[in-house]
């Protein structure tokens, strides 16, 4: 059973925050850098070739990218998978990342053929089986895993609406490529920028307000972007009784659930539900208070998190 099937099943069974962890299929493998190019506004597109032992990631899942020594940082860096394709000897994984600190800057310096270590696939991806017109809401680099989702929807003969927002036109990262990928998946792109330099002048939530009434109900939202945006999208979903699934982030150490370092506060309703069903939930360590971003997520249903306490 795939992770997304698992999550759908768990949620259908009323499992808030997805308590039943999917069986671990991750491995740590050596990967070689393939194409690696600039994507504008401080972002880069990276391809990694992984061997056949690496399980095929699903949209919304991530990996832990570890630089080979000597590296300026100690811990691996979590990175969402943006594309998957078969290649000689295994898979080619695509990533879109921002070089923001020492780890991602060192990553940016790697050229084709360099070796990095990849641990994954990790976490639970977007539950693609939830019915409705897929509305994908992206902020900045969050667009990448959603394009991967759009392609998965296309294979299920479902067409997506992608709402892509950023602070300005330059931060609509890799827009041309994204549009092409989306269109070949039969999807439609809608744009918004805070400064109005491209598309609607406003946020993606403003865009959602405008587009949603024109789409065939029911809708189902899958979103990835900064937490402030995800909070707004989650609240929009809750307000409109539209299921919304949000790809969250946290600082991480292990990525596999053992360190307990990546907590996100659960909502009151999720806590109550957990407390009620405690005896039947075979959790890892699990507290009703916090979900772990890496294993309970990174994709969460809007009602499961306490958005007041998410920064």
């Amino acid at each position: 059973m795939s992770a997304t099937d698992e999550i759908t099943r768990a949620r259908a069974a009323g499992d808030p925050g997805g308590i039943v962890a999917p069986p671990a299929a991750w491995r740590q493998v050596d990967a070689t850098v393939g194409a690696h190019r600039d994507a504008g506004a401080g972002h880069r597109c990276l391809e990694l070739h992984v061997p056949r032992t690496f399980a095929r990631p699903e949209p919304g899942q991530f990996v832990q990218l570890l630089l080979a020594p000597p590296a300026p940082v100690l811990l691996p860096r979590p990175m969402s998978v943006a594309s998957v394709s078969a290649s000689a000897g295994g898979l080619t994984l695509g990533f879109l990342y921002a070089a923001v600190g020492a780890g991602t800057q060192a990553l940016a310096a790697l050229s084709t053929g360099a070796v990095v270590h990849v641990l994954g696939p990790l976490g639970r991806g977007f539950p693609l089986d939830v019915a409705g017109t897929p509305v994908l809401v992206a902020g900045g680099r969050g667009v990448a895993p959603l394009l991967f989702a759009a392609e998965a929807f296309a294979r299920r003969a479902r067409r997506c609406e992608l709402l892509f927002g950023a602070r300005d036109a330059a931060h609509l990262v890799a827009l041309a490529g994204a549009t092409a990928r989306l269109e070949s998946a039969g999807g439609r792109m809608h744009l918004a920028t805070d400064d109005g330099s491209r598309g609607l002048a406003g946020t993606v939530v403003d865009l959602l307000d405008r587009i949603a009434p024109r789409l065939r109900a029911p809708l189902v939202i899958h979103a990835c972007g900064p937490h402030a945006m995800l909070r707004a999208v989650a609240r929009w979903g809750l307000r409109h009784e539209t299921p919304a699934f949000l790809a969250m982030e946290s600082v991480m150490a292990c990525g596999t659930g053992v360190c307990r370092g990546c907590p996100l506060p659960r909502s009151e309703s999720a806590r109550t539900e957990l407390a009620r069903r405690r005896d039947r939930i075979p959790s890892l360590y699990g507290s009703p208070e916090f979900a772990m971003c890496c294993t309970d997520g990174p994709v969460f249903a809007a009602p499961d998190l306490d958005w007041e306490r998410i920064h």
Binding site: V73, L74, L75, V251, P263, P265, E289
Partner: peptide, 17 residues
């Protein structure tokens, strides 16, 4: 339940938890 986030910070050659 453990502590509130943030629970982890990487530092030079190590990590705080």
């Amino acid at each position: 339940a453990g502590n509130q986030p943030a629970r982890i910070a990487e530092t030079a050659g190590g990590m705080l938890n």
